[in-house]
Simulated scan of single mutants.
Amino acid sequence: MSKTLLVAGVDEVGRGPLVGAVVTAAVILDPDKPIEGLMDSKKLSEKKRDALAEQIRQHALCWALGRAEPHEIDQLNILHATMLAMTRAVDALSIRPDFVKVDGNRCPQWAYASEAVVKGDSKIAEISAASILAKVSRDLEMAELDKQYPQYGFAQHKGYPTAQHMKLLAQYGPTEHYRMSFKPVVMALQQHDGILNSGSLNSGPQYA
């Protein structure tokens, strides 16, 4: 009797935001416990994502999260930091996969047999599951950060460079959770310093 090939799906969330970690997930699904409705996490409502994430955590053979922090993103650049976070997620799986399928057009340099699948989060159930876990996890982190810094609106824009976020960033300046190498953050820091030096902003919270 042939052994079932253990395939892990890997995806990331958070390459585009200006703040917070890039978060990855790796998932090996249980073929005996199929999960209905898996698809690209961006195409699901928050309620549906949360419900599916709970099913994945309960029914998958194993799953794990990986991450690269803002200072690592600044040191390595976002691409290499994402590859590092993906490697950390797969390394953290309690079962070693026979094969890894990664969303996108490249795989990390690792010891796993693997392939990159463009738009894999809408084609391959394991990658869809990873996409959902990564997004639910990162969105929760942004909600927690919003509690610490309510003036930035993290719960709404999730750290992405929306017009409202850019306005608030220019007003308050970046916190330690920002990716200081990202151009909009560099520009906002310069703009914020200019506003402070002109004395036109009331002295509010200051961050290094």
Rank of each mutant, 00 (worst) to 15 (best):
A60M: 05
T24I: 06
Y160N: 10
Y178W: 13
V118T: 11
M83R: 03
G159L: 12
R106Q: 14
L168Y: 11
V136N: 00
M187K: 14
A163P: 11
K48D: 08
L52H: 00
G14H: 10
A85R: 04
P161F: 12
M39Y: 09
D40R: 05
H177S: 12
K167W: 09
L61W: 03
P108I: 00
Y160R: 07
A143F: 04
S198N: 11
R138Y: 07
C62Y: 02
Y112I: 04
V102M: 10
I73W: 05
D91I: 03
E46Q: 11
A68C: 14
D91E: 15
M166K: 15
R179E: 12
V136G: 01
G199E: 12
A25N: 03
E54N: 08
Q151M: 15
M83I: 06
P174C: 07
F99K: 08
A60N: 07
E176D: 15
A51Q: 08
G194N: 08
E46H: 10
G37A: 05
A111N: 08
M83S: 03
D40S: 07
L44T: 07
P205H: 08
Y207L: 05
D30N: 15
S181H: 03
M180R: 15
V22Y: 10
F182P: 02
A170S: 13
A89M: 06
V102Q: 06
Q190F: 06
Q156P: 01
R67Q: 15
H177Q: 11
D30H: 11
K119P: 07
D139G: 06
R67T: 07
K48N: 14
P97K: 07
A208R: 09
L201N: 09
K135M: 06
V10W: 01
A53G: 14
Y160Q: 12
R67S: 14
K158Q: 15
D193H: 10
G104T: 13
S94V: 13
I127Q: 00
L93K: 02
Q75R: 13
G9Y: 01
A21Y: 13
P161N: 12
T175C: 06
S203E: 11
V102F: 15
Y149E: 07
H165Q: 15
L44G: 04
K33A: 15
L145S: 07
A163H: 13
A89N: 04
I127M: 00
I28E: 03
P97L: 11
A130H: 04
A26K: 04
